[in-house]
Design a protein around this nucleic acid. Structure first.
Lengths: 209, 209
DNA sequence: ATAGGATATGAGCGATAGCTCGTCTTCCAC
DNA sequence: GTGGAAGACGAGCTATCGCTCATATCCTAT
């Protein structure tokens, strides 16, 4: 695998002016990633689009990877905020309804900025953000596991951790695939929610034979 | 998005010597992708590792992307060969058993060369091989749909296409995640097969309430 | 045996990448 | 209001990239 480049910001902006600079850089990076792809996203180009000199860019980020990492982190924070909110909302709701809500949020999250999401998903390993993303995944699993625990006696699963992994992974990857690689089969979000929810609840609560 | 580079081989080798050259190039590309990552896989480096001059490389492949595309195609052919074989094997088997077999093969396929699989999965969009891969996906779905059709009266799904999409996507992404990003929860292949099969069969055949 | 296509070579070109550093400007504590 | 820290600037360095082309060697059909 590729050696790790430095991906942490160099210093943090303290004055309002420089905070604006940093924002502009991250925003420009996101736009260029979407518009031109990772390869053609050079630091010179990013600085240019941000309306910032290349020197200023390197005051705050030591490398292109660091900028991409910043975009990834920002995007993930957006998503996790929603996820956390919803998981507290559903805490007291029955399984059927809770799962549907979760799937809906997963779709929503993927629709925040699908093209950016796709580019970022591709670049996460290269940019050494895998650990962060896996940490967020684990947080998501843990939160969902917490919910499952509260409904323990309605479930038919051996292991809550395992069940949380199966459910969270299925929901995330199914919505990911359906939103980012749309087919004729699945254009309708409502149908995707229906089917995914059926898949998950069927797994969690197999009706007695 | 990035413009499309040319990704088809330039000419095909006719003599034994040149076929060896081409093989060496593709193999070297695969090794470098795994060892150094996409960024550091330069054509010079690839030619070097292949023991072939840079000139020869460009006799057969017009670009780095073309080389990566060749690796992707080779890898996909390997996988699809297995998938097709298994899908004919299970044609006459009951659902429970067939699904278990499918999941097992999916795991196997991801274990052929996990690190390569991971890098390739990341680079597919960049290299314009999305269409090919999606075509293979469609073929896989179609084959599986064929199987489902033969068991139509044992199923409880509205739409076979939809069901095929849900099953194939779940199996592929769950095994993908479990194999490429192993956690403590799921080290055991047998358990992964059990759970995934339960998820899928539960979806296909929800027992009557 | 040899002509001529197929194959192989690698120095080196132009382009662009990431990035540094010396200089200038702006901000704020005192 | 001023000195020094924070911020912004961008010409330009080195390294490497993808890739061409003139030349040399090998293979095969005759």
């Amino acid at each position: 695998m590729a050696r790790k480049p430095l991906t942490n910001p160099r210093k943090q902006a303290s004055q309002a002016r420089s905070r604006a600079t940093v924002d502009a850089l991250v925003e420009a990076t996101a736009r260029i990633l979407v518009r031109d792809g990772y390869d053609k996203a050079s630091t010179n180009r990013i600085a240019d689009l941000a309306g910032v000199s290349i020197g200023s860019l390197y005051q705050y980020y030591p490398s292109k990877e660091a900028l991409v990492a910043a975009v990834i982190d920002r995007h993930n924070r957006q998503i996790m905020r929603r996820v956390r909110t919803v998981l507290t909302e559903i805490a007291s709701q029955p399984i059927e309804r809770a799962v549907r809500r979760l799937v809906a949020v997963a779709i929503e999250a993927h629709r925040i900025d699908p093209r950016l999401h796709r580019v970022l998903a591709e670049q996460i390993p290269r940019v050494g953000r895998l650990e962060n993303v896996e940490a967020l995944n684990r947080e998501g699993h843990a939160l969902f596991r917490g919910y499952l625990e509260s409904r323990r006696d309605e479930l038919r699963v051996r292991d809550l951790d395992l069940a949380a992994f199966m459910c969270a992974t299925s929901i995330e990857t199914l919505t990911h695939t359906a939103v980012l690689y749309p087919t004729e089969i699945l254009q309708d979000a409502e149908m995707l929610i229906d089917e995914t929810a059926r898949l998950i609840t069927g797994y969690l609560q197999p009706p007695p034979a």
